[in-house]
Design a protein around this nucleic acid. Structure first.
Lengths: 135, 135
DNA sequence: GATATGGCTGACGTTAACGTAAGCGTCAAG
DNA sequence: CTTGACGCTTACGTTAACGTCAGCCATATC
């Protein structure tokens, strides 16, 4: 079933978000589910966009920034200049992500070193306690 | 000069933040500069903490979360149980950072693929235009 | 001694990203 | 047929993270 659709409740359960959040994303034009009367029907494409939205949020992007990024993910139609611009924007965002990864790596190394040092301090403390107990 | 200090203005200029932000961080106990009368004097330690704060922000952590992390970076005193707890918390945060890196890698691959596909589409468009012009 | 520079303390304003509550429709189950 | 479960809209409330403004030192400079 390649054309499965989702109710708002299904998506909420799957990704642990509230209906309010999804409606909010729609209002901000990050999602555009079709309608069955009043009810929202989310397609596969909507689901994919939601995944990107949540991923973006986890990396500290604002919804406005994410909106721009989303356009970058579906603007494969349009003319040559349009596509070229999309590719350029894609490269810029890619650079940003790579820079973020570099900084993340640095943060991880930092923390590892700090833990290692705390470990050493801990061991010397334990040794001191043992010596004291041996008196 | 290992004991250089900084005025609020200096730190603001260096890290492109406003005085208001630094005072806000102090109020939330993320920074604790000493005083010269009314004026704040930031030490090297404060500067280091600020770097961690800004780094945390770039990765989408809230100031409250960052506050906990900061404690993790200076709690090398205290008793054995205290240090052990700090090390545990450090490992938990480390896991979190590593998971974030994995997701970031995935996001980068995703985007690379998308750009590559857009590139292919672009080339086929260009080929089509060339064929049209050759009629 | 006026003024410019840099910093200070309240205190109210603002923006983003939802939360929450009120009131209503609808369809299936009891 | 009414009672849930699910969804809808409208609209006001809330929290985080500052922005902005008013009014007030202190010091250095003209």
């Amino acid at each position: 079933m390649p054309d499965k659709t989702y109710s708002i409740g299904e998506l909420c359960a799957e990704f642990d978000v509230t209906p309010r959040a999804l409606r909010f994303y729609e209002q901000k034009e990050l999602l555009s589910p079709i309608r069955d009367g009043q009810r929202r029907i989310f397609t596969h494409a909507d689901r994919a966009r939601l995944i990107l939205i949540l991923r973006g949020k986890r990396f500290g992007f604002s919804l406005n920034e994410i909106k721009d990024l989303l356009d970058l993910y579906h603007a494969d139609d349009g003319g040559v200049t349009q596509i070229t611009a999309t590719i350029d924007a894609g490269h810029r965002h890619l650079d940003e992500l790579r820079a973020k990864r570099a900084e993340l790596d640095a943060a991880i190394v930092d923390l590892e070193e700090h833990i290692a040092q705390a470990q050493r301090i801990l061991e010397s403390r334990i040794a001191a306690s043992a010596a004291e107990a041996a008196e």
